[in-house]
Structures are given as C-alpha cells and as structure tokens.
Design a protein around this nucleic acid. Structure first.
Lengths: 136, 136
DNA sequence: TAACTTACTTGCAAAATGCAAGTGATTTTA
DNA sequence: TAAAATCACTTGCATTTTGCAAGTAAGTTA
C-alpha cells in the first residue's frame, strides 16, 4: 500500500504528495498542539476523521518520517505518536496557514487568536521556542 | 457542485477545505510563477493535471475568491486567470513549503534553489516585493 | 475470568479522480 | 470565405479514494 509516485521535480508537488490531503496537516496540527497523541486522541479531534483513514495517514506520515511511534510509558495497549524533527519543521507552514486564515475567515477561535498575537510579536523567536518544546 | 462543508472551526481545517488537495496549490504556484495563466498554461505544467479536475479546481478557487478570471487582451477565445489579493497572500505558505522541501528532499531544481537563496536573505522584503508584482 | 479499552482491520457504498473523447465558440489558414 | 485548428471547457466511464459501520486481537481493569 501507499507507495507515493512523484509527479514532478517541483518541491511543492513533492511535499503535497506526502501531506497534501484534507487530513494529514490536521494530524500534524494535533501533534503540534499536544506534543504527543494516542490513536484515540486523533479520533477525538473535532473534524472526526474516520478510523481507517487515520490509520492510513499515520502509516504514510510514519513511512515518510514525519511522525514516529513510541511506547506508552503506562500501558502496552497504547501507542504514542510524536513528530520527528522533519515533522516539527512543518511548523512555519502551519503558522503561515493560521495567519492567512485569520486574515480571511471571519470566525477564528479565541485561543488561536491569542496564540497568533504571540507569534506576530516575534515569529522567529516563537518558532525556535516551539521547536525546542516539541523536540523532546 | 462544490459546496464546501465546514468540518470544524479550526482555521487550518477551513483552509484545507478550500485548497487542501493535491492540485490546488500547484495551480496557485503556477500563478505565482507566471502572474497570469490561461487554461492551457495550467495543462502544460509538469504534473499533468486532468482537464476535468483543472476545471473543477479553478471553479472552487474562483468561488472562494483565491483567483479571478480576466479577459485576454488579444483573443476572446482565451481566458486569463490571476490571483486575487487573497490568493497572493498564500505566498508565505508556498515559501515555507519550499524551504521545508529544500531541507528534506535531496533533489531541488536549480532555479528554485537560487530563488530560495534570495528569499532567505530577507524574507519579509522578498514577500513585499513579490506581492507588489503579483498585484497588478 | 469477564467486561472493557486500545489500536487497528475489513467490507461495502458513495464520492472523487483520471483518462479519453467530445463540444461549441473563436481564430487562423488555405 | 470555407475548412482546419485552437481554446476552454464538458461528458462518460473505469479506477481509486473516502467514509461509515461493524469487526478483531492484544492488553487492561473490575
């Protein structure tokens, strides 16, 4: 399953071939918000991803080293998902998406607005700090 | 056709509902590279989008005010597509995608590499200049 | 040890994608 | 000026992906 075929040499196209669908960036968003998530955590997100789609996306993201699986310290039945450095480095993209959305959508949740206010004060500083927090 | 349903209040999710598929950002990339394109120009791009998919994506992007149609000055048979300000403002996202891709993909075309070198010297300045050029 | 939770998988219907072949309006060519 | 070519699409149909609901197997709790 899921062997990605390269459509061109364009870096944008190759990026989209990995995470350019309606779900992958939401999984990545969840991991940026929470640092680590179980399978069930992803299912609880407001967009209500179907469980088979979630499984397939997690597999593609793991195969492409965007996320990694870790043992749960409290239970063998649970799995922890976390971003790799490659995945963490998608943060600037997510930030720019949020900034664009804030400019053009009328409704933005208050907590996002507050976070974006922080981001805009010092974008590079915010990213540096966030990367450090996500990276173990 | 194409009435988009909101999956949640998340700005990322709402953005993906408009342009979060494997093709839309490539159309937008083409418009950022060329400033204006005809229908045929999009078809010539290396990823070879199918003509029916192109038509459907252009419609969604136009409905969501990301692009606009203009008359071709030389021919009534041709149509010119251009980014709106809302579409032009996706540039920072495209730039961050390119930066991420450059870091993690082994092959990047030379012209992109050169452009990214420019970007990195002064990101805000580059964006300001590019926005001005794209905005008529 | 039985019920429950966890991370998935399976089967199937519905929707989206991809391909090839139109179509109708304009524009060029003979 | 009539025929051929070009342009921006549309249509029909096969393939692939998505989405929903119902499993399942391993591990945990009562």
């Amino acid at each position: 399953m899921n062997k990605i075929k390269k459509r061109s040499d364009c870096p944008v196209s190759n990026s989209l071939d990995i995470w350019g669908d309606k779900w992958s960036l939401l999984i990545i968003r969840d991991l940026m918000d929470a640092r680590e998530c179980t399978y069930g955590d992803f299912l609880k997100s407001p967009e209500r991803i179907a469980t088979n789609i979630l499984a397939s996306r997690l597999q593609v993201l793991e195969e492409n080293k965007i996320i990694q699986k870790l043992e749960h310290p409290e239970s063998k039945a649970k799995v922890l998902y976390r971003l790799t450095r490659k995945g963490i480095d998608l943060l600037p993209i997510l930030i720019e998406i949020n900034i664009w959305a804030e400019k053009y959508f009328s409704f933005i949740p208050e907590d996002r607005k507050a976070l974006l206010k922080e981001v805009k004060k010092d974008k590079a500083g915010f990213i540096k700090k966030a990367v450090k927090e996500l990276e173990n």
